[in-house]
């Protein structure tokens, strides 16, 4: 069986792109473009450190690859590494999926101080904590949980890399749109009452629930923390 020409792997240091040794350049570019297209909303606007692993590329091929990737994301550091043809098979990833973030209980967290305003986009592979508001038109996208210590009025996408255990919690949850993994919910039409208590959104039985998380009303919270679906 011929291996896939291009395999993406998300790591703590950024995106690793494994490139098969026996594919030619046009095949590689085509496969990479396909993958980038399907992951477009995820990569969009993000600064990603890129590491290309595989055979040696000449400067023209390197430029081609970089040009393709920079159409979908802002490349941070870029590194080309040569990997031997064989012997390292076990190190190659077995899935072609951008690994979902697993640090829901504890893991990498980015803290953002200040208000996320319209047109701003906060992206992080791990959990995100916003110390401020998220206004309409602002977007927060996290591989893990999203916590807003203020009012959430924009778009939140928790578990964006495919983790349905992620939650979105806010002192005042009034999002335009709420997404967890592949699930999308939008605000009800018309005037909505401002919720008087902090709330948490999560996925249970393939449905998105929004419930208060205050002590005393915390049955749901216990459920989320102790019995993962």
């Amino acid at each position: 069986m011929k291996e896939q020409p291009v395999v993406f792997k998300g790591t703590r240091k950024g995106l690793h792109v494994y490139i098969s040794n026996d594919s030619d350049m046009s095949e590689i570019l085509e496969a990479a473009a396909g993958k980038l297209r399907s992951g477009k909303p995820f990569f969009e606007g993000a600064t990603v450190n890129l590491t290309f692993l595989g055979r040696e590329f000449d400067s023209r091929e390197q430029a081609q690859l970089l040009e393709l990737f920079s159409r979908y994301m802002k490349p941070g550091s870029v590194d080309f590494q040569i990997q031997p043809v064989s012997g390292e098979k076990q190190e190659n990833p077995t899935t072609d999926h951008y690994h979902s973030f697993n640090g829901i209980e504890e893991g990498m967290t980015r803290f953002v101080r200040g208000t996320v305003r319209s047109g701003q986009r906060i992206f992080y592979e791990g959990n995100i904590v916003i110390i401020g508001d998220v206004n309409p038109g602002g977007e927060v996208i996290a591989g893990g949980n999203i916590l807003v210590l203020g009012t959430m009025r924009g778009i939140a996408h928790a578990g964006a890399t495919g983790n349905p255990d992620a939650v979105v919690a806010s002192y005042c949850l009034q999002p335009t749109q709420l997404r967890i993994a592949g699930y999308i919910a939008r605000a009800p039409e018309g005037e909505t009452e401002k919720p008087p208590y902090p709330e948490v959104a999560y996925i249970k039985q393939e449905q998105l629930f929004i419930e208060p998380y205050l002590p005393g009303k915390g049955k749901q919270t216990d459920y989320i923390l102790n019995n993962k679906v």
Partner: peptide, 11 residues
């Protein structure tokens, strides 16, 4: 909404 965007850009 536009004012919000502008405040972000000013910052």
């Amino acid at each position: 909404r536009d004012a919000d965007r502008i405040i972000g850009l000013l910052a």
